[in-house]
Design a binder for these strands. Structure first.
Length: 434
RNA sequence: GGAGAGAUGGCAGAGUGGUCGAUUGCGUCCGACUUGAAAUCGGAUGAAGUGCAAGCUUCCGGGAGUUCGAAUCUCCCUCUCUCCGCCA
C-alpha cells in the first residue's frame, strides 16, 4: 500500500512514478483518491469538534452529579439535551466518514508499489536489463538434446498423463529417482540457505485472506490463487505469503532486524490466462515446489540486503553449475508489490533460451504498510515501517528441468550434479534405474 | 460436532458505568552509584489520525445497541484455549 500522505503531498510525483509501470497512462488514477481524501479530512474535522464537545458534556455532568446535582435538575437536563443533539449529528457523520475511509482503503489496495528510482524505465520485458551472465561453459551443446519432459518420461521419472487423471492438466507425478531428485534439491537448497544465515520455517500452506492482502496477492489477483470454498483459506501461491505474514501487525525492536527466513513449500497457482503458454513440462504447473527466501529489514539496509539475496539465490545455480543470467526488471515488467526486482534465468537448452528460475524483489515499505509490520528504534519516539524482500532460492521444478537438459548425455543418461550426489547417493540417472 | 472459559499497551496481567489510554510487574531508554559491568536506586516509556504547533480525536478482538457518558452493561460475529466426541 502506498502512503496516503505521500499521495496527498506529492500527487504529481506519485502519479508519474505509477505511470512508469504501464505503456498507456490512465491505468492508475490518483484523482478519485485525492478527492475522497479531502472529503474525509473535512468530515473528520467536523466530527472531531463535535466529539470534543460531547466529551466535555459527559465530564461536566459527571462533575455536577458528584457535587450533588440531581438528574432532574435543569442544568443537567439542558446538558443532556445538547448531548443528544450532538449524538444525532454524529450518527449521520460517522457512517459517512467510515464509508469514505473504506473507499479510500479499497482504492489504495489496488495500487501497486512505486518503482524505485534506480529501476530502469521501460514498457515490457523487452526493456529489461541484463546485468550479467554466468556459466557459458556449462551450456549443453548437444544438438539432439531432448526437452526435459521427454527425457523425463523416457527415464520413467516424470509422468504427466496420470497426473491429469488424478487431478488436471498442469500437474505432474514424480516417480522413483525423480521424486528423490526433487527431495535432494529441496534439501540442498535449504541447507545452503541455512548456512547463509536464513532461519528455516515450515509454515502453514493454507493461508487466510488477511495474509494474502498483506503481501499484495489480494484483492487484485484473487483469480490467481486457489480458494477453499468453505473457509477463509487459500492455497499459498508462494511461501513469501506465510513468511512475511509471520510478522503482520507486529512492532519489532530494531535489534531484531534483519530477520532472514527460508522455507520449502509447495506453491499453488491457477495460472488463469496462461492457457497457451508452457503447456508441456515442469515450467508452468498448478502445483510446484519452491524454496523461498524472505527478509524483514531496516529501511536503510534493504538495498544491500537485496543484492545479498540475489547472491544467495544465484549461489545455488553456481553450485549446481547451471548457466544463468541476472536481469533487472524494468518499470513496466515489475511485479505488483516490488519497487525493484532482479530475475535469475536459467539456461534451458531445449528452448534455446533463459527461463526465469528466481525472482528477487525489494518491496520496500509496500507490504509492511499493508501487513502493518513496524519497528521501534530504541530511544526514538514512534514507529517506522520495515522493508520486506523476497526471492526464490530456487523454484525446484524448474531447477529439475534445467538439470535434465543441461546434464543430459548423448546416450540419454543424466549426470547428477556433484553437489547433489551426497543427497541422492547416485552419480547418474539412467532408464529404469532404481 | 457438544460443553465451558477467554480476547486489555512490546510481553505478562489488574481493572464491572464517570476525570481510564487504563494499576502493577517485566522489558526498553535516560540518569545515579561503580575503574567497568552486574545488582541496587531515581526518572521516562502504547499506537493511530489531524495540525506549523499547542492541542483535539480515535483505539481495551470485530460489529451493533443502551446511556449525557462504556474497557466495564446487552446482542451478534470472529478467533484462541480447556474438556468430551471423532479422526490422523
Amino acid at each position: 500500500m502506498l502512503d496516503l500522505r505521500q499521495i496527498r503531498n506529492n500527487p504529481e510525483e506519485v502519479q508519474n512514478r505509477l505511470n512508469l509501470r504501464t505503456a498507456n497512462t490512465g491505468v492508475y488514477d490518483l484523482a478519485p483518491i485525492l478527492k475522497l481524501d479531502q472529503a474525509q479530512l473535512e468530515l473528520e474535522s467536523t466530527r472531531t469538534s463535535l466529539q470534543s464537545r460531547s466529551n466535555e458534556i459527559g465530564k461536566l455532568i459527571g462533575q455536577k452529579m458528584q457535587q450533588g446535582a440531581t438528574p432532574q435538575s435543569p442544568e443537567i437536563t439542558e446538558l443532556k439535551t445538547e448531548g443528544n443533539q450532538i449524538k444525532a449529528e454524529l450518527s449521520e457523520l460517522e457512517p459517512q466518514e467510515r464509508e469514505i475511509k473504506a473507499q479510500i482503503e479499497d482504492l489504495l489496495l489496488q495500487l501497486p508499489n512505486l518503482p524505485s528510482t534506480s529501476t530502469p524505465i521501460g514498457k515490457s520485458e523487452t526493456d529489461n536489463r541484463e546485468i550479467r551472465t554466468w556459466g557459458e561453459e556449462y551450456k549443453n551443446t548437444n544438438p539432439k538434446i531432448l526437452p526435459h519432459w521427454e527425457i523425463g518420461e523416457k527415464l520413467g521419472i516424470l509422468e504427466f498423463a496420470k497426473a491429469v487423471k488424478i487431478s488436471q492438466s498442469r500437474f505432474v507425478n514424480l516417480i522413483g529417482i525423480g521424486a528423490a531428485l526433487e527431495r535432494a534439491l529441496i534439501n540442498f537448497m535449504l541447507d545452503s540457505q541455512i548456512a547463509a544465515g536464513y532461519l528455516e520455517v515450515m509454515p502453514p500452506i493454507l493461508v487466510n485472506s488477511k495474509s494474502l492482502t498483506g503481501t499484495g496477492q489480494l484483492p487484485k489477483f484473487a483469480e490467481e490463487s486457489f480458494k477453499c470454498a468453505e473457509d477463509d483459506l487459500w492455497l499459498t501461491p508462494t511461501a513469501e505469503v506465510p513468511l512475511t505474514n509471520l510478522y503482520r501487525d507486529e512492532i519489532l525492536s530494531e535489534n531484531q532486524l534483519p530477520i532472514l527466513h527460508c522455507a520449502y513449500t509447495p506453491c499453488f497457482r491457477r495460472e488463469a490466462g496462461s492457457y497457451g503458454k508452457d503447456t508441456r513440462g515442469l515450467i508452468r504447473l498448478h502445483q510446484f515446489n519452491k524454496v523461498e527466501l524472505v527478509k524483514i529489514v531496516h529501511p536503510d539496509t534493504s538495498e544491500v540486503e537485496h543484492q545479498k539475496m540475489v547472491k544467495d539465490a544465484s549461489a545455488i545455480l553456481e553450485a549446481l553449475k547451471l548457466p544463468y543470467r541476472v536481469i533487472e526488471l524494468c518499470t513496466g515488467d515489475l511485479g505488483f508489490s516490488a519497487a525493484k526486482c532482479y530475475d535469475l534465468e536459467v539456461w534451458l537448452p531445449s528452448m534455446g533460451k533463459y527461463r526465469e528460475i528466481s525472482s528477487c524483489s525489494n518491496c520496500t515499505d509496500f507490504q509492511a504498510r499493508r501487513a502493518n509490520i513496524r519497528f521501534k528504534q530504541a530511544g526514538k519516539k514512534g514507529t517506522q515501517y520495515v522493508h520486506t524482500l523476497n526471492g526464490s532460492g530456487l523454484a525446484v521444478g524448474r531447477t529439475m528441468s534445467a538439470i535434465l537438459e543441461n546434464y543430459q548425455q548423448p546416450d540419454g543418461r543424466i549426470k547428477v550434479p556433484e553437489v547433489l550426489q551426497p543427497y541422492l547417493k547416485k552419480d547418474e540417472i539412467q532408464p529404469n534405474c532404481p
